[in-house]
Nucleic acid binder design. Structure first.
Lengths: 346, 346
DNA sequence: TATTAGCACTCTTTTCTTTCGAGTGCTAAT
DNA sequence: ATTAGCACTCGAAAGAAAAGAGTGCTAATA
């Protein structure tokens, strides 16, 4: 990764100061401020010259003629890339597994989102691990009453789904046993994709008299496990109100809507999962974000893995003047803690 | 219910006009407007006199000296009570059951909230039916691997819960059969409250060698079915931005926060469920609302029943100048449709 | 007696000006 | 290469003025 694009140390330091200060205050940063609060011992005039250069290079922007400077997307990008490089070492350790114990997973993830939101003062999201390429572990049919049965489907990673199926025929115990046997011997170990039409036909055949039921049950199962849209937990949406640049009605509405519908958040997750560089950490600044309605924000995502192809995403959405350093650190801490929780439970 | 508290027809009509107009515009209503858009054929001066009276009686308010009038909470209340009386007939039919098919319930309810939000332009919430006083229908334990089993618990109304339990002992098929038998014979038909410590002790005794497992399983089950906080689906939060009086940062933040945390919404639900007058429809205006953070809103809730003690709540949260008439009508329609859906599925 | 026209008065909202100050760019001095 | 100094720009804040909506009251009217 090519860093500090031809900037000398002093320019770099000034740029960094501008960004950091802007992160704190949210106000454009003037030359005087920098000359004062930095150990460069330069007068404001010198700083001004340097700033003019930095502006020419596209790293900072002047909102209007007589204002200080704010970082441009390009400026943020450089800053973040530098941080990344620094943190890379630590970040590598970050991807730890947390398989098993998936049944209370939802609560833990919910909590995780909350903790993250409280800790960072940004809006956060956590996606439950997707298990698309997962395999069936076993299926258990149980009779509920004469015409209803419940199918419990357990998949690798202990993801559990269930579905009530209503059938025409009158059920009895013997049938249930048979069906259970049949389903389990033929389906166990298969991935969702491997279960196809030919499979169904063969099963029906084997079921003989009960082919009707198989058909019903099968539809239900397919329906249940397949198109499940991913669960996403969010927290701290109202944090956007803490940043004036996001809290005008227009932007706030867009962001909050995205968080409510979750549709758009899914896109972010998908995007995050598709890239595998940077050890799972992605930073989208302004226009870079996959979702147009967040063009005034920055989005930081981290991918976590639970092995066996299960992975999910943690995301933080905040203003462009996000405290990237802190966010990344917190993200890491959270991972570690999640990891601990999942392992302590065993 | 005592209605039109000593108001003559003309005053009533004027009050009604003020409210309706204010509902549309959100602006204070002046005397001239009323004299013009009403069939009373009165001059604005006369209207002014009447308005002064109405203000004395507390039905309307003057935000400042030279502004029109807006309805007070008392005014809204009268208006709503009148509407209620009108709609009472229709509303009675509204409580229809929609039992069974509870397994995809979540999706339907989610959708319901959305439809309602789109239809009304207010924020909406739908609580899943609580099943506290429900009975256990049956329990099915299945072995997952050597030390793990999954407990599937089905309750009256086909509410399904599941939980993975890890045990010390090595499991085998025979044990599972025994345990299943034991649990089902002793627990089936009991309500959650009826399962107590004495019960557990007796079960353990009967389990003999496997008392360890029973204990584990039992904890898990109790844990799973009991303290479950109710699921609440929401939609259309961003609708608050459509009403200037709610969309200043302060109020918007409070409302949105309530919708995100859902904690406070639960209180509304609880409140709604506790009152059984008005055939399930409750209207809270301004300060009347159970939740302080919504003191600038009105909240309309409807209770639906699925029989067997299962009931949930639908709620609409909007500005005080809510279109009560439309809201109630939509609420009714939604109920009917939900009903249809749940019955068509059979 | 109930209604209405008329008018002065009150307040908010909007618009326009003015002032203030932060920050700049440039030039000349160090 | 750095810095002091200064004129200049432009937005934000403050103030002033004008516009407008609506009222309350009084006196006239049916």
């Amino acid at each position: 990764m090519e860093l500090n694009h031809g900037l000398d140390d002093r320019k770099l330091k000034i740029l960094q100061t501008i960004i950091k200060t802007y992160l704190e205050t949210g106000e454009p940063v003037g030359s005087r401020t920098i000359s004062k609060y930095t150990d460069l011992n330069l007068s404001s005039a010198t700083i001004r010259n340097e700033m003019a250069d930095l502006e020419d290079l596209g790293y900072i922007i002047q909102p209007h003629t007589s204002a200080g400077r704010i970082p441009s997307d390009k400026g943020y990008r450089l800053y973040v890339d530098m941080l990344m490089a620094e943190k890379e070492q630590e970040v590598i350790e970050m991807r730890e597994q947390m398989l098993e114990k998936a049944d209370k997973m939802d609560k833990i993830l919910k909590q995780a989102a909350k903790v993250l939101a409280v800790n960072t003062n940004y809006a956060t999201m956590v996606s439950a691990p997707s298990y698309n390429r997962n395999k069936l572990k076993f299926i258990q049919l149980s009779q509920v009453d004469e015409h209803q049965l419940i199918a419990v489907i357990v998949m690798e990673g202990n993801i559990i789904k269930n579905k009530i199926v209503t059938v025409e025929e009158t059920l009895n115990n013997e049938m249930m046993l048979k069906l259970n046997m049949l389903l389990n011997t033929s389906l166990t170990g298969l991935s969702v994709e491997e279960i196809n039409l030919g499979m169904i036909a063969r099963l029906k055949e084997q079921a003989g008299v009960h082919s009707e039921i198989i058909s019903d049950v099968f539809d239900a199962i397919a329906n249940t496990i397949q198109p499940e849209d991913m669960e996403i937990y969010t927290s701290g949406v109202t944090n956007v109100f803490k940043y004036p640049e996001l809290s005008d009605n227009q932007s706030a509405q867009e962001i909050i809507n995205a968080f409510e519908e979750k549709q758009l958040l899914q896109e972010i997750v998908t995007q995050a999962l598709s890239k595998e560089e940077n050890h799972g950490i992605q930073v989208y600044i302004g226009q870079e974000t996959p979702v147009q309605s967040m063009k005034d924000c920055s989005v930081v995502t981290a991918t976590y893995e639970l092995g066996e192809g299960m992975q999910g995403t943690i995301g933080i959405i905040g203003p462009k003047r996000m405290d990237y350093e802190h966010v990344m650190k917190t993200l890491k801490t959270l991972m570690t803690e999640l990891d601990e929780i999942f392992h302590k439970e065993e």
